[in-house]
Simulated assay, not measured.
Amino acid sequence: MKIRKATPRDAEPASLVLRRSISELCVRDHENDPLILQSWLTNKTPEKFREWAEAAEDFCCVAVGDQGAILGVAYLARSGEIRLNYVSPDARFQGVSGALIAAIEAEAMRWGLTRLFLKSTATAHRFYLERGYRDEGAPETDRLRDSIYPMAKPLDYRGRLGNKA
């Protein structure tokens, strides 16, 4: 597997990975409710992915398998917000999400960021805890999902990842 910066040419397969990951792996969060599922999938289109891939100020990356298939997608905004980290159901538990987060964290350090933050689903919450992210306050609820976990991970002044919140 290789992690590389996303390109507009990745739009079709990457958006499919996003849609499949949400539909098939995040059932705990959307419970197959069509309204909730649709709200998650609305912007997971090839057109929107092209925008993410072309956003010069941000970092969108993909994990690519040995055969060239896109296995996962991640997106880091210049603000330090991790906006995407999704893996293909076909590549689950193969280290793809961890490799994507490592790439995101490395890019954040190159940018000189001091903190990363995100809003985790219930499905991914443990994944982030295991990688040093910590809850920032109580879980939030929105009108469509039960729990959204605000989380953060500090980066220390020497550019290394911190493990304390």
Rank of each mutant, 00 (worst) to 15 (best):
Arg83Ile: 04
Gly98Glu: 06
Ala152Ser: 15
Ser79Ala: 14
Lys5Asp: 05
Arg20Leu: 13
Gly65His: 06
Ala14His: 07
Ala55Phe: 02
Trp111Gly: 09
Ile3Tyr: 05
Thr121Arg: 02
Arg110Pro: 02
Lys44Asp: 12
Ile70Met: 02
Pro8Glu: 15
Thr45Gln: 04
Gly80Asn: 08
Phe59Met: 06
Ile70Lys: 02
Ala55His: 08
Arg145Ser: 15
Leu100Asn: 05
Tyr133Lys: 02
Ser88Thr: 03
Leu129Phe: 03
Ala102Arg: 13
Phe59Val: 01
Leu161Val: 13
Gln38Asn: 15
Arg126Lys: 10
Arg110His: 12
Leu41Pro: 04
Pro150Asp: 11
Leu35His: 06
Val96Lys: 11
Gln38Cys: 13
Leu129Ala: 08
Glu105Gly: 00
Leu118Thr: 03
Ala63Asn: 01
Thr141Gln: 08
Glu57Ala: 14
Asn85Thr: 13
Thr42Cys: 10
Tyr75Pro: 00
Ala103Lys: 02
Thr7Cys: 08
Ile148Thr: 14
Glu81Gly: 00
Thr141Pro: 00
Pro46Gln: 06
Thr123His: 09
Tyr75Ser: 03
Cys26Arg: 01
Asn163Trp: 13
Pro89Gln: 09
Leu100Tyr: 07
Lys164Val: 15
Phe49Cys: 00
Pro89Arg: 10
Gln67Leu: 13
Phe59Pro: 00
Ser147Ala: 15
